[in-house]
Design a protein around this nucleic acid. Structure first.
Lengths: 185, 185
DNA sequence: CGACACATGTAACACGTTACATGATTTG
DNA sequence: CAAATCATGTAACGTGTTACATGTGTCG
């Protein structure tokens, strides 16, 4: 649900062809989220079918160039003008679901699950900070570098929150084990 | 990619039928993520097709009862035994993508986008804390209540991290505007 | 020449959502 | 009786992934 709008937003800054869209998408997010070229073309077909973009208009090099329509422009404005919905059913959080089910399952060593996850998340966190230190994002001058830097920060913030939550879960479970709690189920 | 494993894990605690699986899933996650009943049946069909569950064995009330196979049990063990992958391409973050593209787009008021999002996320955060105060999660005694409590905590931690990130973005952009930066593009 | 990047697609599949169809049982 | 809940499914669609097919241009 985000590739569609992202491609549309990129197209609004000037007509582009498919391969170019992938390149620009990856540049602006610092190659954090690789975008399969196949998906670019299928998404463009659907956008065209829905009247949000039109193909046509040579760029003098024989590329299949797309540009936004009025409806497409409206869609982009709506995207930027409204927040990503964070109320109502939030997107499913696999980790939270996993722990929730693990807790009420005998035969599952919840402590171990938590420790495994923390190790993995900390490794990811270290990789993100390493990238920040070493990359263009270290001294962002161009807007694209700033964008990359901020994307990396988002990943860092998310990872830190996840680790804090895991610690929190561990503490709650430990307290439950020592005080009344006892065995579950 | 999480409903499949969740249903499988629930089935490993005893044979169940479709409707029952939805109820249990929602109970254990405190109705945070409603699960469409249609998806339960299609997922069960696919699990059966893949040899992870088998249908059959009456429960004495004419329900279509499923139970895990050996392969299904292995799948569940693998799920609990390995972390949710947080390295390599992390799942696409719509908000991060949106801001990254917005930053390198003239004609987009990034400040406004950030403020809109912060308002929405703070509203969601308040709703989560309200639920925590008022619900069963306030004094978790049963394991399911603890699970719900922890799920709510996860949502709170995520929302807080998002707000911190938005503040961070705003600060970086403000600094860029006052110091050298100037207009982009 | 051979490998690699550029460039455009198609097909098959996985997962998820919504809406529809159908019927039994329970409860006000 | 009417409405709600329990219960099982199917169909159509949206989005995303992987793999395959095909061809051009460039560079060592």
């Amino acid at each position: 649900m985000s590739v569609k709008q992202a491609l549309l937003a990129l197209l609004e800054q000037g007509p582009k062809y498919g391969y170019q869209l992938r390149t620009e998408f990856e540049e602006r997010t610092g190659s954090t989220w690789p975008l399969n070229i196949g998906q670019v073309y299928t998404t463009l077909s659907r956008l065209e079918r829905d009247g949000l973009v039109v193909a046509g208009g040579d760029d003098g090099e024989g590329h299949v160039v797309y540009r936004t329509t009025e409806a497409g422009r409206a869609e982009v404005d709506a995207w930027f003008g409204s927040p990503v919905p964070r109320d109502q059913p939030p997107p499913r959080d696999e980790l939270a679901i996993k722990l929730a089910i693990a807790i009420s399952s005998p035969d599952v060593d919840v402590e171990y699950v938590i420790q495994q996850q923390r190790t993995a998340t900390m490794r990811a966190l270290q990789e993100h900070t390493r990238l920040k230190r070493s990359g263009r994002a270290a001294r962002p001058e161009a807007p694209e570098d700033l964008a990359w830097s901020l994307v990396l920060d988002a990943l860092v913030f998310e990872a830190e929150a996840e680790i804090r939550w895991l610690d929190h879960c561990e503490a709650r479970l430990a307290r439950l084990a020592t005080t009344g709690g006892g065995t579950h189920s």
